[in-house]
Nucleic acid binder design. Structure first.
Lengths: 230, 230
DNA sequence: TCAAAAGTGTTTCCATTACACCCATGG
DNA sequence: CCATGGGTGTAATGGAAACACTTTTGA
């Protein structure tokens, strides 16, 4: 299939590694596993897999994400490619990292057992194999940038969420406290959320109203020349 | 060399493609070439090359940059990896794009003939092979972001530059006019430039003072907790 | 009734923007 | 002497940050 000229060149194993972010207990977590094969079998690792001939990089990442989360349509974005010669001590492998935002409410805990997976608080990350810690750092940097510029933070929730929870998540992503009134003012004043009648009473007696991201309102917001900013 | 498990997986040709930016005639340009081999021989293309066994991705990009610019230590940054199955019609190739900022004052024009290369104004880009136009768009987006956040704009110059030239470059990158006084105020007030005694008289009778980026001052600037911003 | 979390406005401050005139010099 | 580009300061605006009290309700 390759043109003649191309055949003179070397080929490489190509992997994808996924930094899967989830929100739990007011903290940002990532899904890690014990590496199932040699070398470094049993060490902490990101979720990954090799790219197949019939897949694009995105498709390979989607495959990995589905395998470990059973969620479809997960929000996902490429971080970058990692290609140091000895980054993988088992051989020459070029890896492309992706980060993903998953809804932890719907996470199937039986998967955790099957794949020896665990949600780990990003503030308590263990050493990971190869350059995976670097990948996590790069993913976090990119996540923070994107969250501030685009309405992707809502992908952490299954549609509805309360403003206190949204703020907890925001604080977990940026690892800094933020003023409640300023936060609410900013997000509400964009007029891209719908307040629900229903309340979440799970974390207070009074209960907090649920909100829902309204895509139509967001598109109108953009049409007015406004820019999302958190 | 690869561990047993790895051998079961397919391998891929991996290329690097470089979006080489230069500043000329008050406009941002990129270095393009006529593709030297089939398929699509003769079509406009980015500067690229295949990754070799003994190179990292960065090293492969540096090799390509040196080949076409003869400059060492060029500022360079990865954009992202492109892995659609049919992105290259000659075969399955995964490509990693890099952008680079080169000093056009020192560009060796004999190279242009040798490689059929040409500096093309970014506002007049022709259709490029494969997904190269997409790569350029992504590189430009990233360049704009980085220029606004980090003092990389100075890499377009060979050390010294005038403020009018710097502003012209800034306007070329963002494709928008900007107020002269505000621009100068912002850049000068950071106190990271050294004004020279010498003037550039090439574009006016009065002449414009040269300035030089002062790395020590910039580091002090950072130590004070300040952040570069243009 | 009280503890615990939800909800609500105003003022201060700083960074960005808008804006117009004088200066220096070679031809 | 004048045309051309280089250089300079101040006022207005708008977004970000600081800040404290009232409300609700289950236990």
């Amino acid at each position: 299939m390759n043109a003649d000229y191309y055949l003179e060149n070397p080929t490489f194993l190509v992997a994808v590694d996924c930094i899967i972010f989830g929100f739990k207990d007011k903290e940002l977590h990532i899904l890690l596993t014990r590496r199932p094969m040699e070398p470094l079998k049993g060490e902490w690792s990101l979720m990954g897999g090799f790219v197949e001939d019939n897949e694009s990089l995105n498709e390979a990442a989607e495959k990995v994400l589905f395998r470990y989360t059973q969620q479809k349509g997960v929000y996902m974005e490429q971080v970058k490619a990692y290609g140091e010669i000895n980054r993988d001590i088992g051989g020459r492998v070029i890896s492309v990292a992706f980060y993903a935002l998953v809804r932890l409410e719907e996470f199937d805990t039986s998967l955790a057992a099957k794949y020896d997976a665990r949600w780990v608080n990003i503030r308590e990350l263990p050493p990971l194999v190869f350059d995976h810690n670097q990948m996590v750092n790069d993913a976090l940097t990119l996540l923070r940038y994107k969250v501030s510029m685009q309405p992707i933070i809502f992908h952490f929730f299954d549609k509805k969420f309360t403003l206190p929870a949204l703020q907890d998540l925001y604080e977990a992503i940026y690892q800094m406290p933020i003023d409640k009134r300023n936060f609410r003012k900013k997000i509400v004043s964009m007029n891209i959320l719908d307040k629900q009648e229903e309340k979440d009473k799970s974390s207070s007696k009074r209960g907090a109203y649920y909100y829902v991201f309204n895509k139509k309102k967001y598109e109108a917001f953009l049409r007015e020349g406004k820019r999302f900013s958190l």
